[in-house]
Nucleic acid binder design. Structure first.
Length: 507
RNA sequence: GGCGGAGUAGCUCAGUAGGUUAGAGCAGUGGAAUCAUAAUCCACGUGUCCGGGGUUCGAGUCCCUGCUCCGCUACCA
C-alpha cells in the first residue's frame, strides 16, 4: 500500500498579489510534493487564499468592488502566478468555499462543546480611520501611529478561546515529538513563548460582517486567524467525509513562514487538542527572502514580482535559484547579480553544456544513435561517480525530510561536475580520431547518457519542465521516480535521439 | 533584562564525538584541450577561524569573559 503525504502551505491574504517571498514558500512546498510523488507517496498538496480579513474587505472597498467579487478576481490572479511557476497543487482552497464554511462552524461548535469557548470582553484603543485595535504600547504619545489621532477606547463582547489551559499539554506534546517543529530555532522560540505564559485569545468579532458567522450567534463572525487555520482540515474532508479525513489527516507537514509559527504551533495545535483531533506531524517555518539585504515591502514598492522575474529565464531557473541559493530554514538574499551567476555557472555552463556536448557528440560520431555499452566497462572516474551517486541516493530522502533542498542540489551538481571531468578524461574526440568505431567511444558516450538521465530525474522536482524537455531530447519517456534514478543502464541502445536544443541560452 | 542564533579566504558559506599542512562554490591569475551555449578540465589562497583568558599533549571545534549583528520575549516609559 502506498503511503499518503499531506502537505500544505500558508494561505495568503488577497489584499495584494504574491511577492517573491510568498513564491519562495510555494516553490519549496511544490518541490517537496514532487519529490514525495517521485518517492512513491500518494501526495495531497494544498494551498490557497485567506479571504475573510478586514484588510481584504478594505481593499475591496477602496476599489469600489463587492468584497466577494474582489476576492474572486484576486483568487484567479493568484492561481495564474502559481501556474506560471509550475506549482502543482491538488487543491487551491478559498476560505469562502462552501465546505470551509461548514468546517469552520463545526470546529467552532466542537471547541465550544468542549467548554473552551466563553464570552468575554475585548477592549482596547481603536482607531476609526485604521479600523483597527491598538495595544497601548503601539501608540505614539497616545495617538494612532498612522493617523496621529486620538483612538477611542472600545469594549466589545467577544468569544474567547481558552488557550491558556493548553500550555502544559502543548509543552508536553512538543517534548514528546521532537520533530514537530522545525527548524530547531523555531521550536525553541515557541517553547519560550509558552513557558512565559499564554493568554486566552479572542476568536470572534461583532464589529464586522465579512466572515463566517459564529454558529450559535450570527451577530459575530469568526476571527480571521481562527477561520484560516481550519482550512487544513477542510481540505482533508472535515467534517463531511470521514473516510477521506481519516486517510489524510493529520497533515505530514505545514510549510509556513517563520513569522507565523506561533499561530500554527500554539493556537492551531491547541484548537485541535480541544476538538480532540490528531495533530499535524510537522510544522516547518522557513526563512525570508530579502532583496539586497533589505526586507521586501509592498508599500515601498520593493517587493519583487515572481511573475515578471520568471519571465527573464523562465520559471525553472528561478525555482532553481531559490532552492539552491537559500537554505530553506534560513533567510536569504535575492540579487539579480547572484541570479545571473547561478544561471550562467550552474545551469548554462555545468548542466546545460554537459547535455549539449554529449548529445552533439552522439550526433556527430554515431549519427544520433544511442550506442551500446559493454557490461564490464569501468574507469576510475566512473566508479567515483557511482560512489557519489549511491551515497546521494542513500541520503536523499533524509535530506528532503529536513527540507535541505540546497544540500541535495549541491550533491547533484557534484555528479554533474564529475560527468564533465569524465568527458575531459575520456576525450571522445580523440577516441574517434583513433578509430571511428571505437568500442571505448561507445562505452563512454553511453555512460554519459546514463549520467545525464539520472541527474535529470534528480533535478526534476526543482526544474520539472526543463527535465521533461531534456527527456524528450534523449527521446526517452521514463516516469520521474526515485527507482529510475537508482538503476544504471535503463537507456536502450540503438534508438535515435530527439532534437538538440540548448536549455539555458545566454543573453 | 531573559532565551536563542550568528561572527571562518574578496563574496556566499561547509567544518562531523577536539587531533596530522583549516575546506567548497563563485570571482581572480596562469595553463591544457577543442565535443560543446568562449561552455569544459587542470594548477594557484602567508586566511590574527571576532577579541581576551582558560582546560588539554593538542581547540575553529569545550569552558569563562568582552565586542558586533540578528531573531523571539519581558518590563519600563
Amino acid at each position: 500500500m502506498r503511503s499518503k503525504f499531506y502537505i500544505t502551505t500558508a494561505i495568503d491574504y488577497v489584499n495584494a498579489l504574491p511577492h517573491l517571498g510568498t513564491a519562495y514558500e510555494k516553490v519549496g512546498a511544490d518541490v517537496m510534493a514532487r519529490f514525495k510523488r517521485m518517492a512513491g507517496y500518494d501526495v495531497f498538496f494544498q494551498m490557497g487564499v485567506d479571504e475573510h480579513s478586514l484588510n481584504v474587505a478594505k481593499q475591496a472597498k477602496l476599489k469600489n468592488m463587492d468584497t466577494k467579487h474582489y476576492c474572486d478576481a484576486m483568487a484567479v490572479r493568484f492561481e495564474e502566478v502559481w501556474r506560471h511557476l509550475d506549482i502543482n497543487y491538488d487543491r487551491f482552497i478559498r476560505t469562502t468555499d462552501n465546505d470551509h464554511f461548514a468546517s469552520v462552524q463545526e470546529m467552532f461548535k466542537r471547541i465550544y462543546e468542549n467548554g473552551d469557548i466563553y464570552t468575554g470582553k475585548y477592549s482596547g484603543y481603536y482607531c476609526v480611520s485604521c479600523e483597527k485595535f491598538y495595544q497601548e504600547k503601539e501608540l505614539e504619545d497616545g495617538l494612532c501611529p498612522v493617523h496621529k489621532r486620538k483612538p477611542d477606547w472600545l469594549e466589545e463582547k467577544n468569544y474567547f478561546f481558552s488557550l491558556s489551559k493548553y500550555a502544559q499539554p502543548l509543552l508536553k506534546y512538543i517534548e514528546d515529538n521532537p520533530g514537530c517543529i522545525e527548524p530547531e530555532i523555531r521550536k525553541n522560540e515557541i517553547v519560550n513563548v509558552i513557558k512565559s505564559g499564554l493568554e486566552d485569545v479572542s476568536v470572534s468579532r461583532s464589529s464586522q460582517t465579512w466572515g463566517i458567522p459564529v454558529p450559535f450567534d450570527d451577530t459575530h463572525v469568526v476571527y480571521v486567524w481562527f477561520d484560516a487555520l481550519i482550512n487544513y482540515i477542510t481540505g482533508a474532508g472535515f467534517p463531511a467525509d470521514d473516510n477521506r479525513f481519516n486517510m489524510l489527516w493529520p497533515a505530514d507537514v505545514h510549510v509556513i513562514g517563520k513569522d507565523i509559527t506561533r499561530f500554527h504551533c500554539i493556537i492551531w495545535t491547541a484548537m485541535l487538542m480541544s476538538a480532540k483531533l490528531p495533530l499535524p506531524k510537522k510544522v516547518f517555518g522557513h526563512g525570508f527572502v530579502y532583496l539586497g539585504g533589505a526586507k521586501m515591502s509592498k508599500s515601498d514598492g520593493t517587493a519583487l514580482d515572481p511573475l515578471s522575474l520568471s519571465k527573464i529565464y523562465g520559471p525553472d531557473p528561478l525555482r532553481y535559484f531559490l532552492m539552491r541559493e537559500i537554505p530553506f530554514d534560513r533567510d536569504g538574499d535575492f540579487l539579480m547579480e547572484k541570479y545571473e551567476n547561478r544561471y550562467n555557472a550552474d545551469l548554462a555552463n555545468d548542466w546545460g553544456n554537459l547535455v549539449q556536448r554529449v548529445l552533439s557528440m552522439i550526433k556527430k560520431y554515431r549519427d544520433g544513435n544511442v550506442p551500446l555499452c559493454s557490461d564490464n566497462f569501468e574507469t576510475p572516474l566512473l566508479s567515483q561517480w557511482r560512489n557519489l551517486h549511491s551515497a546521494l541516493m542513500e541520503t536523499i530522502e533524509n535530506d528532503y525530510d529536513s527540507f535541505r533542498f540546497s544540500v541535495v542540489l549541491s550533491k547533484i551538481w557534484q555528479l554533474i561536475q564529475l560527468s564533465n571531468r569524465f568527458v575531459e578524461v575520456q576525450a571522445p574526440w580523440k577516441l574517434y580520431k583513433q578509430s571511428k568505431d571505437s568500442k571505448e567511444l561507445d562505452n563512454t558516450l553511453y555512460s554519459l547518457l546514463e549520467m545525464i538521465r539520472i541527474a535529470n530525474i534528480l533535478i526534476y522536482p526543482v526544474m520539472p519542465s526543463v527535465s521533461r524537455r531534456i527527456q524528450s531530447q534523449l527521446n526517452i519517456d521514463f516516469p520521474f521516480s526515485l527507482d529510475e534514478a537508482l538503476k544504471w543502464g535503463r537507456i536502450q541502445g540503438n534508438h535515435k535521439l530527439g532534437e538538440i536544443i540548448p536549455m539555458f541560452p545566454k543573453a
